[in-house]
Every structure is written in structure tokens, then in C-alpha cells.
Simulated assay, not measured.
Amino acid sequence: MTQKTQLTQVSSELQNLTVTKSNTATAASSYVLTDLGTLGGHLCVAKDINDSAQIVGYSITSSGQRRAFIWTPTKGMEDIYTLSNTSTCAYSINDYGQVVGYFVSDSGQRKAFIWDQTKGFQDINAESDNFSEAYGINNFGQVVGCAISSDGNRKAFVWDSKHGMEYINNGSEIESIAYSINNSGEVVGYSLSSDLMVKAFVWNSNKGVQELPGFLGSDINMSGQVVGFYAVPEDNNRAFLWNGSNKFQDLGTISGNVDLQFFDSEANSINNSGLIVGYSDRIIDLEKELWGRKAFIWDSVNKMQDLNDLIDTNDPWILREARAINNHGQIVGWGNKAQSRHAFLLTPIS
């Protein structure tokens, strides 16, 4: 199938999809896979997708440079041009096509940016040449990420065009990073306290910081459900779901309760229907303790499923990690295709 045919198919599938508002949705039984291509090199990673199937991430160019991209069903993959001709990376996109990520400044420092087709590129930490990266943006243009503060530590921030960059503080952390913000202004991430304890947190401007049982919060939906991962014995991480009412759920792994060192699962994204995606190690040979990283989708009925089992088996892919899921159930991430790492889009077959 040519890329042009794939783009047409994705556009057709998107028109037939509706946003589900229930929190009891289940994963599709199968998905159409679209190879997003590259900017000329052999590596591409998709980081986020909005409800119009606009996708962002980064790709290596033919000259070996890392560049942020935006992909659309009609135009395919395009380089996001910034003020810098060096490395760039896009992490998140909202439903208005506003993109955030980082670029490398002339001094060699990573700097957070916001970009859209109309206003172009803006350095959101222009007052400082310190390190900063933007990881999430909601539909009100509120941006979250981390930046080096005056004390030399990484601090989670919230930025908008009116107030600029403001740090999220709970008074005890020595490091913090914010990864996602929903349309209610609730933020999730992680913080490192002075006694070196790492905790996931949720924050809003009214209630301040609330620590969660997890290790890191990666995403939050409009119901206040949080996903991420937490640490378990044997140096493992496990994906979790926190429903906003102090109910904490271990999502397990694709292979069940396997007790092997460094056998992990991590949840990266949750949509408003409660569908969760990420990656999980999957047993290849238990006797030899061999496993491989596989992309997963989780729902409350079917639990964790390997996305490789839900695509056409004739596709020469191994889906390694699902990075984001939109409210139509479309999923993006990266996987291995031949000897290359490519970005993929999965569209549910209705």
C-alpha cells in the first residue's frame, strides 16, 4: 500500500469515527496501520496525536539531524521550521494545532518552544538561556514542562501567553517535571524530594500539589484519571491507573505477573474514554529469561493487549511503544520495520 493510499484511508476512517465520552470504552478488535514515513533518515518517533489526526514527534533527516515534524492525513510529514537549524523535537499537539517541544539554541542549550501554522515559532523561555523543555499543551494554550530554575535544579512549570512561565512548587522537592495538562488545568508529573523520594503528582492552581502512590505521572484525562508507572521489587516498573478518588490500580504486563528483574510496563497516555496505551515487556522464552518490548492498549474489560496481535500479521512490523491515543481511539508510537525505527499510526476498524 502506498503512503498516498494510506493517507486517503486514514482520512476516510477518521470521518466515520465519533468521540466517545464514556469511561467504559473497549479497544477495537483490529487496527489499520499507517507508516508515517521519515524526513529522509532511518529513524522516526511519533509522540502525540490530536483529535484531527495531526501527529507530532521527531525524525532523523538524511544528514543525520533530529528534526521536529508534524504529520497530517492530507499532507503527510513536514518539518516544523524553527529559529534554529539544529536539533528540534515536538512532544505534544492540541486540537488547535499548537505544538510544543524543544529546540537547541545557538549556545547549544535546549529551549522550550510553541508553534502553530499561523503564528509560527516562539521561544517560551526567551528571558533565560537556561535549559527548558515543553512536554504538554491543552486546548487553552497552557503549556507544561521543566526548566532550570535560579537554584540550578529542574522545576516543573506552567506557561501561557498571558502569565509567562511559572514554576509549580510544593515546598519540599529539589527536582520536578510536568508531563501533561488537561483542559481543566490539572497537571501531572513527578517530583524528587529532599529525602530523595520520587513521587508522581497531580496539581492545579486551587488545590496545589497532591502526591500519588506512583513513581511518575505521564498523562491525565478530563475525568482526572492519571496514568504512569511506579516501582516494584526486582527493579521493575509497572503501569498504573489512578482514578482521581485515591483508587490505584496496577495494570500489570502483557505476560501477566512475571517476576523477572527489569521486566517492565509503563503507561504513556489515556483518552477521555479511559483507553490507555504504553509499552510492556512480553515473554519470548521464560526459561531463558528472554523478553521483548511491545506496544499495548488497556481497557477495563479486556485488560492489557499486545497491539501487535491487533494488526495485519502480514505487516513487517514490531510495534515497540504506543506513545499517545486520541479520543477517536487512534494510536501513535514507534516500532521496528526491517532495520529501521519508524513512527506508526493505528486507526480502529469499526
Rank of each mutant, 00 (worst) to 15 (best):
D235V: 12
A267K: 02
R238H: 04
D299I: 03
D259I: 14
A231K: 12
L286G: 13
L260Q: 13
N246W: 07
D235F: 07
L216D: 14
R282L: 10
R282P: 08
N308E: 09
N243A: 02
G278W: 00
Y230I: 03
S245A: 13
I270G: 01
V277L: 01
N257V: 09
D306R: 04
T253W: 00
D219Y: 03
V232S: 09
N268V: 09
N271D: 06
K288P: 09
K294G: 07
F240W: 05
N243C: 01
Q225F: 03
N268P: 06
M222S: 14
V258H: 07
W242P: 03
I254K: 01
I270H: 01
V258E: 04
D259Y: 13
N246V: 01
R238K: 07
V227G: 04
I276G: 05
D281R: 06
N272C: 06
G214R: 04
T253C: 03
F262Y: 12
K303C: 06
G228E: 06
A267L: 01
N236H: 11
V258T: 07
W291K: 00
W242G: 08
L290H: 15
R293N: 15
S223E: 15
K288V: 04
S223C: 10
D299V: 05
V232N: 03
K247P: 14
L260E: 15
K294W: 08
I270T: 06
P233A: 02
E289L: 07
G244T: 10
F215Y: 05
A267M: 02
L260N: 11
N246D: 15
V232F: 02
L212E: 09
S269T: 09
Q249L: 05
M222C: 15
L216C: 14
I254C: 02
D309M: 10
K294P: 07
K247M: 10
L286T: 13
Q225T: 15
I254V: 03
N243K: 08
S245K: 15
Q261G: 13
N308R: 02
P213W: 05
S223T: 14
D309K: 09
Q249F: 00
L260W: 15
D235A: 11
I284Q: 14
G252M: 00
N243G: 04
L216H: 13
D309W: 05
G256N: 11
F240T: 12
E234I: 09
N271Q: 03
F296R: 00
R282T: 13
D299E: 08
F296E: 02
W298S: 06
D219K: 08
G278S: 05
I254H: 01
S265Q: 05
V301N: 14
F248L: 09
D285K: 08
G217L: 02
N272D: 12
N243E: 05
N243W: 00
I270N: 02
G244F: 00
S218Y: 12
I220D: 08
F229T: 04
D281A: 06
D235P: 08
Q261V: 12
T253K: 06
G224A: 04
T253V: 03
I276C: 02
G252K: 00
N302Q: 12
K247Y: 07
I284R: 11
W242S: 05
F240D: 11
Y279V: 03
K294F: 10
G292A: 14
N243F: 00
